[in-house]
Nucleic acid binder design. Sequence first.
RNA 1: CGGGGCGUAGCGCAGCCUGGUAGCGCACCUGCCUUGGGCGCAGGGGGUCGUAGGUUCAAAUCCUAUCGCCCCGACCA
Length: 590
Amino acid sequence: MHRWSELFIPTLREAPADAEVASHKFLVRAAYIRQLAAGIYSYLFLGQRSFNKIIGIVRQEMDKIGQESYLPALHPRELWEASGRWSVMGDTLFRLKDRKGADLCLGMTEEEVMTEIARKELRSYKQLPQIWYQIAPKFRDEPRPKSGLLRVRQFLMKDSYSFDIDPAGLDVSYLKHYDVYRRIFDRCGLRYMIVEAHSGAMGGSESHEFVVRTPAGEDQIVSCENCSYAANMEKATSQLAAIEDLAGDGKPLEVHTPGQKTIEEVARFLGVSPKNKIKTLALMTTEEDPKIGKPKPRAVVVLLRGDHQLNEAKLSTALRGKESRPMQEEEIQQVFRSPAGFLGPVGLGNLATVKDGAFGEGVILLVDKALEGRKNLIAGANRADYHLKNVTPGRDFEPTAYADLRSVTAGEGCPNCATPLRVDAAVEIGHIFKLGYKYSESMGARVLDRKGKEVTPIMGSYGIGIERILTAAVEQSNDDDGFWLPPQIAPFEILVTPTNTNEEKLMTTALEITSKLETGGFDVLLDDRDERPGVKFKDADLVGIPFRVTVGKKVTEGTIEIVQRSTREVHDASIDAVTDYFQKLFRPAR
RNA sequence: CGGGGCGUAGCGCAGCCUGGUAGCGCACCUGCCUUGGGCGCAGGGGGUCGUAGGUUCAAAUCCUAUCGCCCCGACCA
């Protein structure tokens, strides 16, 4: 029997001053977690119990499609160099040296280790498909840990990896995960959405995120309330209302725009809408120079409609997976021979073209599709205090390529049905995606197919953030006094509260009810502390347990109270009927 | 990485500007009292003022450095 008086549940009356989001405040106040360092948390008794419940559900469902394993968190550098991620991951990868000076890192995910096992052990198509998973800590040296458990440097992840002989096989493994994830999140009692996601630059063909809408979230998701369209911001597209082009049929014409640098300033100065203006962004990327075998900088110019925002994930896709950064002032001078603020595409020499799917020499000029077919736009003249009128893409400059580069905003038309889209913040709790051949190829995993030919297995990878399930649940269900969890993931399902432990009748009844409920298969916590009722009720409201049985004065009439935390609904039940009551209530969920 | 803020008892904070005995509320311990929404009275314990250096007769307070934590930004040229 779990007696509160003997347990370590240090609830707090006040939240730590630096807690901003509800889940952070309440998980600390309710004694689920304590912070050890930035983005690093200890899980106390209640928190760990809740995580164990979540892990239990995840494990039970994952066992239906995969095999559990447990991989090291400490990885040798060589493994990550083989996949190329040692350099790609930058400072987000925790790195350390052992006593001999050998480089190691702490795993962020385990593609390398899983693929290493596959490379060494898998020989034949007969061994495929495989789905291997684990539930283990992951480490990421986030530039900015924040929001309690939402963005941390160490966290628990269920990660799984599939190996298939061909893309059709991958489709099956992917779908299995899709279905199992739905069961997992359903069982965890979350209200979640499934959205199309950016699959990363390297060959990922399909990807879905499982998200929970909450203002505390860091993801932006775009969804349609009319049809089923839903995607995250990195992937979302929309239909745009037609824009009336400015009149004019001449060649580009310089106009004096003294000191007018920003889109808004220029538009106001010229009396036009930002929608008739071109936004010119100057960026630098790096690429391998085949002649010298070393990376060299490469200029990228991006054009967007004046009121649109660049989406970096889409840009990265358009650049074949390369990262980029804004140009420095000197670099802008070099490429444009113009101060920032008056940049434009007209007259840019040395533009790259695309041949055989690769960029040729020169400046890469990427133009957002929203500018395709537009006419008579305003753009910078590459000269201080001047802009150009009558700029028409395709006539006055030739883009290297048109691409979808902009972020969708709320109210734009759904790509399927034109209904205005909504944009919401959300927490990502799960992500599945088709990796393709990236790791199996780079790390040299090969199997023989039916014909005895060597082929590279195709992979998928799939993650679930354990802590985020709890965090999202708290964000979804809280009020001023605390939060309530779905019984399936709550540390306890029922809290039994005798209002006065000094009254023998109350205590014996509370003990009796507690043990009956336990016998009935419920997880029960008995609040046997010698505290005033107010204190116990406040704690009861705080700690996330979805039901409370109050044992008070009415025991003399053979009655106790059952309180549902979510609604605060109270009803009386006879002492003998308590177990029955919960059995009926819980049966649908069990 | 850029900008801002904060480090004083377990938690929340005051004191710092204007240098001179380290305080308040909650929590904790003891006793009494109370028992349906963080009750009351009395007594008590607990702090290297983040760390290091400097200025000074004297530093929580002024100066410098450093570490930690939080927030905003890191795209609109």
